[in-house]
Amino acid sequence: MKKFNVYKSNNKFVERIFLASAIILFATYFFSKANSTFLCFSIIFLSLTLLSWLRNCFLRNRLFKEFIDSIELFDNSKILDLGSGNGDVIIRLASRLTMFSNVSIFAVEDIYQTDNDFMYNALNNRVRYRIELSHKDIRKLDYDEESFDIITASNNENSLLNSHKKSDYKSICKEINRLLKPGGIAYIFNNKYTSKKMANEFINQDNKVFFYDYKFQPLYGVKIFSVEKKNSE
């Protein structure tokens, strides 16, 4: 990767709360000359800010790198990324391709996503020309049935992939199954609860499901699994 917002956190709200709390407590200690309790708590909140930033900026990037490196790419493949957000998954995947690769890549930001860093990251990594980006409801897409060899889906901020609603994750699983070619593989990155529910949906569709065991997964409360669509008989 070249420039990919490596040091940008995906949990800015929590970190800002920690940092604001640390500043307020330190100011209270400094101006009121109160006991050292305020200073201790300000140091604790500052430490939490730094730990959260390290978790989201460094460990998360390592986890994504291991995840993406495990995906096997083939010539003439068609790839679809759902809930693209800032492009963490699909831009890293596109960056693995050679200049003359004939792999086709489609990325879909779902209807609730507001992250606008995709274009910036794609341009910085010189892969914008490889990716067809659109903004659609990932529960019901207009692509033809059995169109894609590989589908990736990551629960970026505000994505429907984060939804715990049964109707949402069932619709997404149904759509992924519809769009995958027989023998095609989907790679899903999601929270523990939704990953388990989605995996059960795919199993009920007679697909093969495999859970990965990467380092740092417990730090995020996430599960990464793959789904191999059953070949037509």
Results as ranks from 00 to 15, higher is better:
Met1Phe: 13
Lys2Met: 03
Lys2Thr: 11
Asn5Ala: 12
Val6Gly: 06
Lys8Cys: 07
Lys8Val: 05
Asn10Pro: 04
Phe13Gln: 07
Phe13Ile: 12
Val14Gly: 02
Glu15Ser: 12
Glu15Phe: 03
Ile17Thr: 11
Phe18Val: 07
Leu19Met: 13
Leu19Glu: 01
Ile24Asp: 09
Ile24Ala: 15
Thr28Ile: 14
Thr28Glu: 07
Tyr29Thr: 03
Tyr29Trp: 15
Tyr29Gly: 03
Tyr29Leu: 05
Lys33Phe: 08
Lys33Met: 06
Ala34Cys: 06
Asn35Glu: 07
Asn35Val: 00
Ser36Ala: 09
Ser36Gly: 05
Ser36Tyr: 09
Thr37Glu: 06
Thr37Phe: 08
Phe38Trp: 10
Leu39Tyr: 09
Leu39Met: 14
Ile44Trp: 04
Phe45Lys: 12
Thr49Ile: 01
Phe58Ile: 15
Arg60Phe: 10
Arg62Phe: 06
Arg62Tyr: 03
Phe67Arg: 08
Ser70Pro: 10
Ile71Ser: 12
Leu73Phe: 08
Phe74Asp: 05
Asp75Thr: 10
Asp75Val: 07
Lys78Val: 00
Leu80Glu: 01
Asp81Leu: 06
Gly85Pro: 11
Gly87Val: 02
Ile90Trp: 05
Arg92His: 05
Arg92Leu: 03
Leu93Gly: 04
Ala94Val: 10
Ala94His: 03
Ser95Leu: 00
Arg96Phe: 00
Ser101Phe: 07
Ser101Cys: 08
Asn102Asp: 15
Ser104Glu: 15
Phe106Pro: 04
Ala107Ser: 15
Glu109Thr: 10
Tyr112His: 13
Gln113Tyr: 05
Gln113Asp: 06
Asp115Ala: 09
Asn116Asp: 10
Asn116Tyr: 02
Asn116Arg: 08
Phe118Ser: 13
Met119Asp: 12
Asn121Cys: 02
Asn124Glu: 11
Val127Glu: 08
Arg128Ser: 15
Arg128Tyr: 08
Ile131Pro: 12
Leu133Glu: 02
His135Ile: 00
His135Trp: 09
His135Val: 00
Lys136Thr: 00
Lys136Gln: 11
Lys136Ile: 00
Ile138Cys: 04
Ile138Arg: 01
Ile138Lys: 01
Arg139Thr: 15
Lys140Asp: 10
Lys140Tyr: 13
Asp144Ala: 14
Glu145Leu: 05
Glu145Trp: 01
Glu146Tyr: 04
Asp149Glu: 13
Asp149Gln: 11
Thr152Asn: 00
Thr152Phe: 00
Ser154Gly: 14
Asn156Lys: 01
Asn156Ala: 15
Leu161Lys: 04
Asn162Ser: 12
His164Gly: 02
Lys165Arg: 12
Lys165Asn: 12
Lys166Glu: 13
Asp168Pro: 00
Lys170Gln: 15
Lys170His: 11
Ser171Gln: 10
Lys174Met: 11
Glu175Gln: 10
Ile176Pro: 09
Ile176His: 02
Asn177Glu: 09
Asn177Val: 02
Leu180Asp: 02
Leu180Asn: 01
Ile188Ala: 02
Phe189Gly: 00
Phe189Cys: 06
Asn191Trp: 03
Tyr193Asn: 10
Thr194Met: 09
Lys197Cys: 11
Ala199Asn: 05
Ala199Trp: 07
Asn204Arg: 09
Asn204Pro: 01
Asn207Asp: 05
Lys208Leu: 04
Val209Ala: 05
Val209Leu: 07
Asp213Thr: 13
Tyr214Phe: 15
Lys215Tyr: 08
Lys215Ser: 13
Gln217Ile: 01
Pro218Trp: 02
Pro218Ser: 08
Leu219Asp: 09
Tyr220Asp: 08
Tyr220Arg: 11
Lys223His: 07
Val227Phe: 01
Val227Arg: 02
Lys229Trp: 04
Asn231Leu: 10
Glu233Phe: 11
